[in-house]
Write a protein that binds this DNA or RNA. Structure first.
Length: 685
RNA sequence: GGGGCUGUAGCUCAGUUGGUUAGAGCAGGAAACUCAUAAUUUCUUUGCCGGGGGUUCGAGUCCCUCCAGCCCUACCA
């Protein structure tokens, strides 16, 4: 078989939230496919990236008083940690906010311009003057123009009517709570209709799409003129500015898929290869794995862009359904909106990989994670049937190793070896549930074999030593075949099997030849059963997270009432976390200003004599001259750091500090003031 | 309203181009065994293949229609 050159992508997760079990359907599905192709000896490049642009990231950065770059860096790190935890084997993980991407966007954009596909149109849109940004539909609420219901979304109402946000009565910006104004702005559009002939042919006549997807495209889009695609957004927008249209930015869905190429480019630079060897090479296959929510972008816009720019078209767009948990949409309240991170704290990633594999087919059906079924399936299939094969026979072989000659096995090994092609085809077609069924059928043939051969009986009869070794040699090799077939799904199991037998699993074809005459290592547990308590802990933790988030959400609603500016936190970000022990070292005390006076020759200082009760006093120089008159200070209470190491200053020893809030301006100094009743000397904690 | 998809044992699903009495795993019932993470093996119960009509010697499989469910989308087919 000639090695194929295969580029694999999984959809880019948005840099605005954690990876959860729903995301993982796709990344596990894609990873299994990529690992399968590698195992078959093909040249595979599996790339992904964080999707970083758009309004949502911009708003979040503003809200948190950080730069967009900080937000996306943090997110990328978390995403990659989660993916690694589930064994997702990306060759490169990039970001759409990269120089490689900016450059590729520019190049592709130019070809689209040159092809005459871009036009400019003025559209009316709501503008939030306070935030200085145009408002996407989902950021506007208002009164429905048809039925008069208040508090409806920007583009449709509960009553079933749809409208443009500018038609709303009393629109309100969800960003600032202010009333947005209608403004005109020029947007750039790609005239997709010009590509109709190509898109019709590509979606309907090729085999790049699943049949139901081709039908969907036909029914949903091709029946009418393809609408112009609004590809630009006016400032402010977090993204790439369009080089030949200053002040406009590419809409996030323009640069996101190009991120696949940018990530490839990064990998190429690290590995001395060329982008065009992957993206302009007719011998290279491109496989995109996506969810059914983004069909539109990957089957119309993206092929249109690639075609125009002269790059490879997707060989296949492989589309999967969504995840439900216990038959319902994932819900934070019910504890089923489980984050990848939370899962990993309690359960084995291999269990989820296997469960998803056993559920995934080539079609777009949603898959359900029924938690009882999950436990039963993993326990029965993997631990009881597969791993148990090794567990029950390995120790009989420890003294002798594997037989040198292949004994009579009733044709079992060959039968499994012969099923390799059918299993491989199922993997190739993303029909993993079929692959798992075929593999488990082989396990169901192996267990009766052992039962009939009864090695535990043979062991008791001295003259049956050879037979014992032979029977277990068969059993272990049947097990090894299963581990090879399961390797794309369970890389850890494959690795442990390699260790047990002193022969690493690296190729699909290893399932064709039994291992003979080699020693065997001590058997170690390879997988353990799922403890239902761990599942319960996982959902409990998810619920607790949700409660914490809900109260945080309620708090920020409260904060919104006061409209406090985030600017101070932006200017002076919070410092590193400290422990209680760190904090308690600082001895804060209530103190009375006994005397306050100007310091001759000092521009900013006042000299204070602070009383801590009785005769205990401190002499403190405080830089508060710009905001306070000494006469106003005498007699009042302040909070001071009472155990600060004395410091010699130009005008004398300073034996502490008074606490004050301060802004950027010299006059913005506000001494802390204990409430009535506090007495000098009392500790502040 | 339009479009896409699904409906097979209690549960999760297979059923290839229409062909002999409709399958698997799990769950349920009975027994055997003890090497193994109480795992395994053998036997066993269960189906108006959503309803109705049609094509055919023959339909779960093709056609029509109705019903139910999921998803997408909107006054445009």
């Amino acid at each position: 078989m000639n090695p194929r050159k295969i580029l694999v992508t999984a959809a880019l997760p948005y840099a605005n939230g954690p990876i959860h079990l729903g995301h993982l359907v796709e990344y596990i599905q894609t990873d299994i496919w990529a690992r399968f192709q590698r195992l078959r000896g093909h040249e595979v490049l599996f790339v992904c990236a964080d999707d970083t642009h758009g309004t949502a990231i911009m708003l979040r950065a503003q809200k948190e008083g950080r730069s967009e770059e900080e937000v996306i860096a943090e997110s990328s790190e978390a995403h990659q940690r989660d993916f690694a935890g589930f064994g997702v084997s990306f060759d490169n993980y990039g970001s759409t906010h990269s120089e490689e991407n900016r450059k590729l966007c520019g190049e592709i954009w130019q070809t689209i311009r040159d092809a005459g596909l871009v036009k400019s149109k003025e559209i009316e849109q709501l503008f939030d003057a306070e935030k200085g940004t145009f408002l996407a539909d989902r950021f506007v609420t208002g009164t429905c123009p048809k039925c008069g219901k208040t508090d409806q979304a920007g583009d449709n109402c509960e009553c079933g009517h749809t409208y443009a946000p500018v038609e709303l009565i009393d629109p309100i910006s969800a960003l600032s709570g202010t009333k947005p104004e209608v403004r005109n702005a020029n947007h750039l559009f790609i005239e997709l209709e010009q590509l109709r002939e190509f898109l019709t042919d590509w979606t309907q006549n090729g085999d790049s799409l699943q049949p139901e997807v081709a039908n969907y495209i036909k029914g949903q889009f091709l029946g009418d003129d393809l609408r112009d695609w609004d590809i630009s957004r006016p400032a402010q927008y977090f993204g790439f500015e369009i080089p030949d249209s200053p002040g406009d930015y590419w809409y996030v869905w323009f640069d996101a898929p190009i991120g696949y190429m940018a990530s490839t480019q990064q990998w190429c630079e690290k590995n001395g290869q060329k982008l065009d060897d992957w993206w302009k090479n007719p011998d290279c296959e491109v496989h995109h794995f996506i969810g059914k929510d983004i069909i539109y972008f990957h089957t119309l816009f993206w092929p249109g862009m690639l075609k125009t720019a002269g790059y490879n078209l997707p060989t296949k767009v492989r589309i999967h359904g969504f995840l439900t948990v216990d038959g319902e949409k994932m819900s934070k309240r019910k504890g089923t909106f489980v984050k990848a991170e939370t899962y990993l704290k309690h359960l084995d990633p291999a269990a989820l990989r296997y469960f998803y594999a056993s559920k995934l087919g080539p079609r777009l059906d949603d898959i359900d994670l029924n938690l009882e079924e999950f436990q039963a399936k993993v326990d029965t299939d993997l631990v009881n049937k597969v791993v148990n094969l090794a567990s029950r026979c390995a120790k009989f072989l420890k003294p002798t190793g594997l037989s040198a000659q292949w004994p009579d096995d009733g044709g079992l090994f060959k039968q499994a070896a012969d099923s390799a092609d059918e299993i491989a085809q199922a993997y190739e077609d993303c029909d993993y549930n079929k692959a798992m069924r075929l593999i488990l059928a082989a396990a169901d043939r192996a267990n009766p074999f052992i039962e009939n051969a009864a090695p535990w009986v043979l062991k008791k009869e001295e003259d049956k030593a050879q037979e014992l070794q032979d029977v277990c040699t068969v059993a272990i090799n049947l097990f090894r075949q299963l581990a090879i077939f399961l390797a794309p799904v369970l890389p850890d199991l494959a690795e442990k099997t390699g260790e047990l037998l002193g022969d690493p699993i690296t190729s699909w074809d290893q399932a064709q030849t039994p291992l003979l005459g080699t020693p065997i290592n001590k058997f170690k547990h390879m997988m353990k059963r799922i403890d239902p308590k761990d599942i319960a802990k996982m959902t409990e933790e998810t619920k607790a997270d949700q409660d914490a988030e809900a109260s945080a959400g309620a708090m920020s609603e409260l904060a919104a009432k006061y409209n406090d500016s985030p600017q101070h936190l932006i200017d002076k970000p919070l410092t590193e976390e400290c422990t209680f022990d760190d904090f308690i070292k600082v001895d804060l005390r209530v103190a009375r200003v006994l005397q306050a006076s100007h310091v001759e020759g000092a521009d900013k200082l006042l000299q204070l004599t602070l009383g801590l009760g009785g005769d205990e006093q401190r002499n403190v120089f405080a830089g508060i001259k710009s905001a306070y008159d000494p006469a106003d200070l005498e007699g009042r209470l302040v909070v001071m750091v009472a155990n600060l190491k004395p410091r010699k200053m130009r005008f004398g020893m300073s034996e502490g500090m008074v606490c004050a809030a301060g802004g950027p301006e010299a006059t913005e100094i506000y001494l802390l003031d204990p409430d009535n009743g506090a007495q000098p000397g009392q500790r502040v904690t």
